[in-house]
């Protein structure tokens, strides 16, 4: 049976992980490679690296980092953050990223989804959608959630699928950072209109939140950052909890 995926997300700036981590035994707590290896060994099903570097040097640093990660990590990983062209995506994929994640750049120029999917296949293209409930409906926000667009979330989700996206990473801005649980209503709305996997993001604060989102919606995966980085939830513990609650989940010996 296909399993639900648990995906830690690492924010990267200038080649280092941004959020503090309090894992013991890491040689360099700021090293994305060390942290990623740790997560992979603990049973993470996939990893997402989100580059938030704002300098022009970032592409080179990121591509170099991707190459190191690909050498060290034995599970699939996605790289996102400021990918604006087919060329940038191609560099990251050829250096070893399994998937690239597009956000604002896809809103700005939707054909980018088509271009990358056309060359590397839909399975390589994740479209990240930041959404917020505003004036009675779920709308798409860009630029790290600062700018509201005219797009309704369900319409944009349908469009990215039609353009060749292989997955949707849906982050609810209303719940992101609150630790009050995933926003299930918008997940359900999106899942109803697309036939590609949807990853829930934003709001994870407890193991119960993961259980709820898997029980109450048809998401394929759930993503979180700080609860893992700060050791509030350990991946083996979370997975055992979900398994005992009859969620289809991958465990290893």
């Amino acid at each position: 049976m296909l399993k639900k995926r648990i995906i830690p997300c690492l924010d990267i700036k200038d080649g280092k992980t941004v959020k503090g981590v309090n894992f013991e035994g890491l040689i360099d707590a700021g090293s994305p490679v060390e942290l990623a290896k740790r997560y992979a060994d603990e049973g993470a099903d996939e990893l997402v690296f989100l580059d938030i570097t704002a300098t022009i040097e970032k592409r080179k640093t990121l591509a170099d980092l991707v190459e190191v990660i690909a050498k060290e990590i034995n599970i699939p990983f996605t790289v996102g953050g400021g990918i604006n062209s087919l060329e940038e995506a191609a560099t990251l994929i050829l250096r070893g990223a399994d998937k690239v994640s597009l956000n604002s750049s896809a809103v700005k120029r939707p054909e980018l989804i088509q271009e990358i999917a056309g060359q590397f296949g839909s399975q390589c293209v994740v479209v990240a959608i930041d959404t917020k409930f505003t004036n009675g409906e779920w709308k798409v926000f860009v630029s790290g959630g600062r700018i509201e667009t005219d797009l309704k979330t369900v319409d944009w989700a349908k469009k990215v699928e039609a353009l060749g996206a292989g997955e949707i990473l849906l982050t609810s801005m209303n719940s992101d950072g609150t630790k009050n649980g995933f926003e299930k209503s918008v997940l359900k709305e999106v899942i109803q209109v697309v036939n590609i996997p949807v990853i829930a993001s934003g709001g994870a604060g407890s193991k119960e939140h993961f259980k709820e989102v898997f029980e109450e919606t048809n998401v394929s995966a759930a993503l979180a950052a700080s609860v893992f980085h700060f050791g509030e939830i350990s991946i083996p513990d979370l997975k055992m909890y979900l398994k005992m609650n009859n969620i289809s989940i991958r465990t290893t010996l």
Partner: peptide
Amino acid sequence: PLDLVPQMGWN
């Protein structure tokens, strides 16, 4: 097309 295609993930 009875489920999501592709199959993506751990089985």
